[in-house]
């Protein structure tokens, strides 16, 4: 590919508390419009890798470039990049003291400096897109897990991000709610959004991923297309992992 990647991570290492090695020399490039799914056992560093992309975790060594901006450089204004990178969390992290609509509006007003009516217009449009316009004035506590997660996706999308990060978005959901969230994500992938997704949903990886990355013990073990990964896994560790979850 002659295009330069929108996310470029080079030799990222990260240690927690001085001795727990979360990432060891991981490199990953993501191109605009791509959907990259990261899988692996828990504790393999996949969430840490994802959180490095918007600087919720700071890499100890290595370089990260997002949208042409050097993230690991000291003088970089991290808030500017974060506004371009949407993130969806396992625990939703909606703001409980604000309605669904206000949740989606707030950052637009505070960060993007949109006026109230414009923020509300965008918020209603995004809630429509994730399929719950009727819940606009409801507080998060009254929403189901699946609805909360869809509001969280709308909240991130309202900032018009160039990249969306998903950190196990369906892991805290009841089984019957997983599909409604995955459907929203599939639609997003079809629209050409650049997505990096940490998930255990192999069905989603098969359906939407351009590439799948398998991680274990802080290392990137395998990086390939979903078909190759599921039909013809190379490494023993990946075979073992797949045999346990499929």
């Amino acid at each position: 590919m002659d295009k330069s990647p929108i996310i470029s991570m080079k030799n990222i290492s990260k240690t927690f508390g001085g001795f727990v090695q979360a990432l060891r020399e991981v490199s990953l490039d993501v191109y605009a419009g791509e959907v990259v799914v990261i899988i692996g056992p828990s504790g393999s560093g996949k969430s840490t890798l994802l959180r490095c992309i918007n600087h919720l975790e700071t890499a100890d060594t290595g370089e990260i470039w997002v949208d042409g901006i050097h993230l690991t450089h000291k003088s970089t204004d991290i808030n500017k990049i974060r506004a371009e990178v949407g993130m969806v969390f396992q625990q939703f992290n909606l703001f409980p003291h604000k309605t669904a609509l206000e949740n989606v509006m707030l950052a637009q007003q505070v960060v993007r400096k949109r006026d109230r009516s414009e923020a509300e217009r965008v918020a209603r449009m995004q809630l429509e897109k994730v399929g719950i316009p009727e819940k606009a004035d409801v507080y998060p506590a009254k929403l189901s897990g699946g609805q909360q997660q869809r509001v969280a996706i709308a909240r991130a999308l309202a900032m018009d991000p160039k990249i969306m990060l998903f950190d196990e978005p369906t892991s805290a959901l009841d089984p019957e709610m997983i599909k409604e969230v995955l459907d929203v994500m599939l639609d997003l992938a079809k629209e050409g959004m650049t997505m990096v997704v940490v998930t255990h949903e192999m069905g989603f990886a098969r359906a939407a991923a351009d590439r799948v990355v398998f991680m274990d013990e802080g290392r990137k073990i395998e990086e390939t297309t979903p078909v190759a990964l599921f039909e013809n896994p190379e490494h023993d560790r990946l075979k073992l992992f797949l045999s346990k979850i499929l």
């Binding site: 919720l56 974060r82 506004a83 505070v110 960060v111 993007r112």
Partner: peptide, 10 residues
């Protein structure tokens, strides 16, 4: 809560 707010660019 802090992480969600920061991740939105606040």
């Amino acid at each position: 809560q802090m992480e969600a707010a920061r991740s939105l660019g606040m």
